[in-house]
Design a protein around this nucleic acid. Structure first.
Length: 857
RNA sequence: GCGGGCGUGGCGAAACUGGUAGACGCAAGCGACUUAAAAUCGCUUGGGCUUUGUCCCGUGCCGGUUCGAGUCCGGCCGCCCGCACCA
């Protein structure tokens, strides 16, 4: 093939991007007369290079954006940068580049790479969260949250890396050690800022039911995360002490099975006792040193320390031992539990270890108080209460109610609801984040920075040569006068969690250049909420929950009048690739390896390579393919087409070289088909449809209309792979209709025009060029979506399957909507049916119009 | 442990509310073109058969409902994901 006959993406793709730019084709404008559609993909962290996950994410979003625009919506499709975060500080330490410079360079590089994909993005709305013109507004929001009582400061436990002098997130603690330093992580109490997400816990939970266009999976994950559970708070007296202990339980009905009371090592009473009991203090310290990683928790056995106190049972008056136990969390409930070993596995393990009594108080169906006992497996199922005085004979639910009523009457407790969800700690001891706009004064306390002094900007000359927070040891930055009393004071040196920026960026896009406020009511009122949000499931809980919370908080502070930020959510699958290893276990990049049928060899020396299973592309396994290389080899449209072709977007996608080549072949096949005729019959000015079409031409016309109908439905439902399969089917049909007859030419032309328009959201450059060669005078980007003629969607003949006892025996063509009799007679006349009947009458004949006739013998 | 999802050719997958299983593509094979290769085009491709028949078997396994089950129900097996000492 000559170069001329290939789709020359190197010149065609940039040319069309220029045309779209010149037309300002993707600039969004508020227009109350038009229906808006806000498409948003999760914005990227500017690492410096795009990866395949980005390509998939933005290709998916671009299909939606271009499709909706073609259908006449006023589309907003913006892009920006989630630009704060730890990697910039790491780069600063390693390469001595200031985080701001590193980040801005990365943004510039990634912007160019993204632009190379030909996305229909309104770049005039680009935002970067690390710039003061962005974060000044969130500082203002924080001050408003403070005023509204939605932000507060308290002491909280954190993972502390003693070498780096920094707080670590849970995922940065590996095996109880800091991920970077390897030093054992300590639990420490630090004063930190919190946002009161728990204020909305119930609303965040119940509103999930209304998010109908969210995946059930994500809603369920959020539901579990919020973790509402109802039960009771019970106050226990402690013998010989003024102060009692309050306990939370979901099983108040099991109160008569209680054999001990357990306190968290961080419970105030435990700490008080530890103060003059060195052994207990050592035990508490040990629990705190244990770290918070999941693995350590899982391995830790249940251990307790007898506190030397006795709790008084609220109904029997029995004295029960009090332990400090390592499995009781201070952060949940009240930090204290009553132990009922027979009906809770942890309590049972604990009771067996410390030889405490195990009294069953719930007997399953069919068992009685005398014959039911618990060995080493706690019974947590339903049943009747036993050994429980006034509860005996009740079922579990009634028992709970009865106990709660009695507790309330006695003033010893009450029914209550507890959430697993905790307030959002937003303080981070880092430089590269948004400064928290607060000043600490010895006499006035924590004083908000006056609004007129916003933004509080980061110093531009941080030093990373010492461990700890550069803001804290910056020579001048933190030293300011107290806004209240004017005495010397210090700035808050913590910065916000980077989830803070991503919790409202979707609103900033509505009005990105507004200097006075984060966004105007008008702009937000028009564009919000986001109609379709697209991103990875890894953000199913945190980012999405924080954004839902932020939207409510902003609403209550008068910024917005919506409750939910995202009405539609789509979570895409990951991009995977085979993994390659040398015999001695070193990972290899796919680009270093050649596949040879069964196995693979290393390019450098021809040695064999072990081919591993396909896994999510990751740098550590080196199973990555650089999108930039793919775009340079095949062009953006081929990369996009492959991304969308084979796998449904919500499933994982296996990246294969041969798959990309398949997409490339298809691009060239339709390119050649159109170009071969573009100078001749297809390129002439649009010829009208001939009055009558021969059967093959009419069949193609019908198929074209059916394809329009099918693809439109598929794109609405995110079935992009099926949409492409349909378009390929149509392409194959057009290629099969060769011939110079006038009606054939018309049908082909109509077919290719339709292919160009339907495929435009997936491969925008190619289809623009095809459209132009087919005589289109206006770019496709401004065109309307094709509409199928309903009259041509139904065939007048249908193929009906003929079954005998449910097995296919023949297919026959019948007129559409033929009478049941006609279908039945035709079926019975079939040779295979007659043979099966062998002269006998059928027992039954089932006719499903236009589908099947089943003859039952 | 708790919760959720998924099992269809050699591979990625289609199959609307129960109605012709395997569309579309990848890989493979054969053929055409070519000095040759690449590219392109055409054909074949779930398994089985001493019966090439619109024959038998076939959607993880076993059973059920139905005229009819990939699809619905019950029970297993396997894989994946989320949460996890949450009282």
């Amino acid at each position: 093939m000559t170069e001329m006959s290939r789709y020359d993406f190197r010149s065609i793709e940039p040319r069309w991007r220029q045309v779209w730019d010149d037309l300002n084709a993707f600039a969004a404008h508020e227009d109350p007369k038009r229906e808006k559609y806000y498409v948003l993909e999760m914005f990227p962290y500017p690492s410096g290079r795009i990866h395949m996950g980005h390509v998939r994410n933005y290709a998916l979003g671009d299909v939606v954006a271009r499709f909706k625009a073609a259908r006449g919506y006023n589309v907003l499709h913006p892009m920006g940068w989630d630009a704060f975060g730890l990697p910039a500080e790491n780069a600063a330490i390693e390469n001595k580049v200031p985080p701001a410079d590193w980040t801005r360079q990365n943004i510039a590089a990634m912007r160019e790479q993204l632009k190379g994909l030909g996305l229909s993005i309104d770049w005039s709305r680009e935002v970067s969260t690390c710039e003061p013109d962005y974060y000044r507004h969130e500082q203002k929001m924080f001050l408003d949250f403070l005023k509204a009582g939605l932000a507060y400061r308290r002491e909280a436990w954190v993972n502390w890396d003693p070498v780096d002098h920094t707080v670590l997130a849970n995922e940065q603690v590996i095996d109880g050690k800091g991920w970077r330093t390897g030093a054992p992580v300590e639990k420490r109490q630090l004063s930190q800022w919190f946002l009161k997400i728990t204020h909305y816990a119930d609303d965040l939970l119940t509103a999930l039911d209304r998010l109908e266009r969210w995946p059930d999976k994500v809603r369920l994950m959020q539901r579990n995360w919020i973790g509402k559970s109802s039960g009771a708070r019970i106050r226990f007296d402690i013998a010989g002490r003024e102060e009692g202990v309050e306990v939370f339980t979901t099983r108040p009905d099991t109160i008569f099975g209680m054999s001990f009371l357990a306190l968290s090592p961080n419970h105030p009473i435990a700490e008080e006792l530890a103060a003059d009991n060195p052994e207990l203090a050592a035990f508490v310290a040990e629990c705190n040193a244990m770290g918070t990683s999941e693995e350590t928790i899982e391995r830790a056995e249940k251990r307790g320390f007898a506190a030397g106190l006795e709790a008084v049972h609220p109904f029997t008056g029995a004295r029960l031992p009090v332990y400090v136990a390592n499995f009781v969390l201070m952060e949940y409930g009240t930090g204290a539990v009553f132990g009922c070993p027979a009906h809770d596995q942890r309590d049972l393990d604990f009771a067996r270890k410390y030889d405490l009594s195990v009294v069953p108080v719930v007997a399953p169906e069919g068992a009685t108080a005398s014959d039911f006992s618990v060995a080493n497996e706690a019974y947590v199922g339903p049943g009747r209460l036993i050994n429980s005085e006034f509860l005996d004979g009740l079922d579990v639910e009634t028992g709970k109610q009865t106990v709660i009523e009695r507790l309330e009457a006695d003033g010893r407790g009450q029914g209550t609801t507890t959430f697993r969800l905790r307030d959002w700690g937003v303080s981070r001891q880092r430089y590269w984040g948004c400064p928290i706009p607060v000043i600490h004064c010895d006499s006035c306390g924590a004083v908000p920075v006056p609004e007129s002094d916003l933004p509080v900007e980061l110093p531009e000359d941080p030093r990373f040569d010492k461990p700890g927070n550069p803001l804290d040891h910056h020579p001048t930055w933190k030293h300011v006068a107290c806004p209240k009393c004017g005495e010397p004071a210090e700035r808050e040196t913590d910065t916000f969690d980077t989830f803070f920026e991503s919790s409202w960026y979707f609103a900033r896009y509505c009005d990105p250049r507004n200097e006075k406020v984060g966004f105007s009511q008008d702009a937000a009122g028009y564009w919000l909420p986001v109609d379709q949000y697209i991103g990875g499931v890894e953000h199913a809980v945190l980012h999405l929950l924080y954004s839902r919370f932020f939207t409510r908080a902003l609403r209550d502070c008068g910024y917005l009048d919506i409750d939910e930020p995202f009405t539609g959510l789509f979570t895409q699958g990951m991009v995977c690739h085979e993994t390659f290893k040398t015999p001695d276990g070193k990972w290899l990049f796919p680009s270093e390896v050649t596949r040879t049928g069964e196995g693979a060899t290393r390019d450098s020396d021809g040695t064999p390579v072990t081919v591993g299973r396909s896994e999510k592309m990751s740098k550590s396994r080196k199973n990555v393919v650089d999108p930039v290389d793919i775009i340079e080899t095949y062009g953006a449209d081929t990369a996009r087409l492959f991304m969308l072709s084979d796998s449904p977007p919500d499933r994982d996608l296996e990246w294969t070289e041969s798959g990309v080549e398949g997409a490339w072949r298809y691009v060239n096949r339709i390119w050649r088909a159109v170009m071969d005729e573009a100078d001749g019959p297809l390129g002439v000015a649009r010829a009208p449809r001939p009055k009558t079409l021969s059967a093959p031409a009419e069949a193609l016309e019908r198929q074209t209309h059916k394809t329009i109908d099918g693809v439109t439905g598929d794109l609405e439902k995110f079935h992009f792979n099926r949409a492409i399969a349909r378009i390929r089917e149509l392409s194959n049909a057009i290629l099969d209709l060769s011939g110079a007859e006038e009606d054939f030419i018309w049908a082909r032309r109509f077919g290719w025009e339709t292919v160009a328009r339907l495929l435009n959201p997936m491969t925008p450059h190619l289809t623009e060029e095809l459209w132009r060669h087919l005589g289109g005078t206006e770019p496709l980007v401004g065109h309307h979506w094709p509409v199928a003629d309903p009259g041509l969607l139904v065939e007048d003949k249908v193929t009906v399957a003929i079954q005998v006892n449910g097995k296919l025996r023949a297919t026959i063509d019948l007129p559409r909507d033929a009478e049941k009799r006609v279908a039945e007679d035709a079926a019975l006349a079939e040779e295979n049916v007659r043979r099966a009947l062998d002269g006998k009458a059928p027992r039954k004949v089932i006719v499903v119009p236009n589908r099947i006739v089943n003859v039952v013998i």
